[in-house]
Amino acid sequence: MNEPMISLHNVEKSYPQGGGRVFVLRQIALDIQPREFITIMGPSGAGKSTLLAILGMLDGDWTGEYRLLTEDVHKLKPKDRVALHKQYVGFVFQQYHLLDDLTVAENLDIPLSYRDIKKSERQAVVADTLDRFGMVAKKDLYPRQLSGGQQQLVAVARSVIHKPRLLLADEPTGNLHSEQGREIMELFKQLNTAGTTIVQVTHSETNATYGNRIVQLKDGWIVK
């Protein structure tokens, strides 16, 4: 087997409470190969979103070893983790988290503008993405003018516009009805087929079937 894209070894997260510590994640060991489509499942409070945040380097307060591609994330300074995140990771949130005062096109432009890409190049990429996701007609609309499904579509487009190698999705269909959710999951499948490694957190068994491996978490431990 090839070298895994992501390798977690003995990753733990806890916070102090009373005289001791409360653990959110315990001794997490996980390898993810390139182009895998992983589903993380488990009851509420199992640590699923926390694990996703650690994978996406949005949470830096943990112990253990985390290797992404050739980088030992656990040895990097926060500034370098941010750079790594920018280079390889896209994130889709349950609440979409679009910026309300920006249009659809401007929301798509934001991640590119944070990656020092020239304006002319950004405009071309945004136009291409709008076209690819069928949103050209909506480019000047604000998020409040879109349906939930459309907003999540924009959020997905925004998360992949910079061609990340790793896409992390936290309950991406949690706020959508089933048809909209299905459309989003089909889109994820296409992205995975095209080469993007995807890790999703979901309660939905249906959504889990889109992936090729399920990781079960319970009380912070990987149980399967």
Binding site: G56, L58, K79, V82, H85, K86, F91, F93, H97, L98, L99, D100, I110, P111, Y114, R115, R158
Partner: peptide
């Protein structure tokens, strides 16, 4: 919330 989103999308503190 907006600030959090921007950071998640790659904004540096300086930016």
């Amino acid at each position: 919330r907006e600030v959090g989103i921007r950071v998640a999308l790659g904004a540096t503190r300086g930016r």
